Amino acid sequence: MTNRPSVLITGASSGIGATYAERFAARGHDLVLVARDKPRLEALAARLRDANSVRVDVLQADLTDATDLAAVEARLSDDARIGILINNAGMGQSGRFIDQTAGTIDRLITLNILALTRLASAIAPRLVQAGEGAIVNIGSVVGLAPEFAMTIYGATKAFVLFLSQGLHLELSPKGVYVQAVLPAATRTEIWERSGTDLNLLPPMMEVDELVDAALIGFDRREQVTIPPLQAAERWDAYDSMRKGLLAEIKQDRAAERYRTVEG
């Protein structure tokens, strides 16, 4: 046991989630690892316990299943040791919008939006009461780019960014840190699971580099961390333009161009 807060990580059996687990264990944090693949979770947990002398609990759960999701919510709301949530579990999109079925749409939105939001909601009241803690939501740069033709996936990641920014405004005055991490293409199993041919994709960032960069942003208490963005001022300019746009639409009349009928 340590005096540091425990960290609950979803999607922890591989890729980004497993790497977060390695990094936080190395920092001396106890862990709660959540994923569907219990054998892989158990193997990771055993390795992290041996290497770092931390407590690692395994919680097998399919976050698209209502019963499993409720169990993870209960752990977040009831376990006062958990002070950091890494909302990492997610799935990609195979094919364009017209290729999707009702089932694939439901599963994508349930995991990427519903589960992520409910888990944040489960822990937030307790963190606010404690006056400390952190929620990290893993989004994607695809949420900024409808041009990438991953319409539903991108929409879910746009939601993650918006939710994180809104939570920051609500929770940061109460001592709770909220970070949105927006990776670009990263070499993880999500591509194979979504049926994407890796040979058709541009070079991708390795998971270790992605998570290490995200944790630097975490330590700096960045609101939005975009590991592949070379010029930080680009995001600042983007956000400033967004706020400037808002200032111009707080009006009680339609714009002049919409009040004049042409031709």
Rank of each mutant, 00 (worst) to 15 (best):
L8D: 14
I9W: 04
T10A: 11
T10Q: 06
G11I: 09
S13R: 01
S14D: 15
T19H: 12
A26T: 04
R27L: 13
L33K: 03
V34H: 06
A35H: 01
K38R: 15
K38C: 07
R40F: 07
E42M: 02
A45P: 06
A46R: 06
A51T: 03
R55C: 13
L59G: 02
Q60E: 15
D62Q: 08
A66W: 01
T67Y: 03
T67L: 08
L69M: 07
A70E: 10
V72Q: 07
V72M: 09
D79S: 05
R81Y: 07
I82V: 14
I86Q: 11
Q93P: 04
G95H: 06
R96P: 01
G103N: 08
T104N: 10
D106C: 02
R107H: 04
N112P: 03
L114C: 02
A115D: 06
L116H: 00
L116N: 08
L119D: 14
A120G: 15
S121D: 14
A124Y: 11
L127I: 03
L127C: 08
Q129K: 15
A130Y: 02
A130L: 08
G133V: 08
N137Y: 09
V142N: 10
L144A: 05
E147S: 14
E147H: 07
A149M: 11
M150W: 11
I152R: 00
T156S: 10
T156E: 09
T156W: 05
K157Y: 05
K157W: 01
A158I: 03
A158C: 06
A158H: 06
V160F: 06
S164G: 13
L169F: 03
E170L: 14
S172T: 13
S172R: 06
K174I: 07
V176S: 05
Y177L: 12
V178L: 04
Q179G: 10
T186W: 13
T186S: 13
R187M: 13
T188Y: 03
T188M: 03
E189W: 05
I190A: 02
R193N: 14
G195P: 06
T196R: 13
T196K: 12
N199F: 02
L200E: 15
P203L: 12
M204V: 01
D212C: 08
D212G: 02
A213P: 05
L215S: 05
L215D: 13
I216G: 00
G217M: 02
F218E: 11
L229F: 02
L229T: 01
L229C: 07
Q230T: 09
A231S: 09
E233K: 01
W235Q: 15
A237L: 12
D239T: 10
D239V: 10
M241C: 00
R242F: 13
G244A: 04
G244L: 09
G244K: 04
E248T: 15
I249E: 01
D252F: 09
R253H: 04
A254V: 01
A254H: 12
A255I: 00
R257A: 04
R257M: 03
R257D: 07
Y258P: 00
V261S: 12
G263C: 00
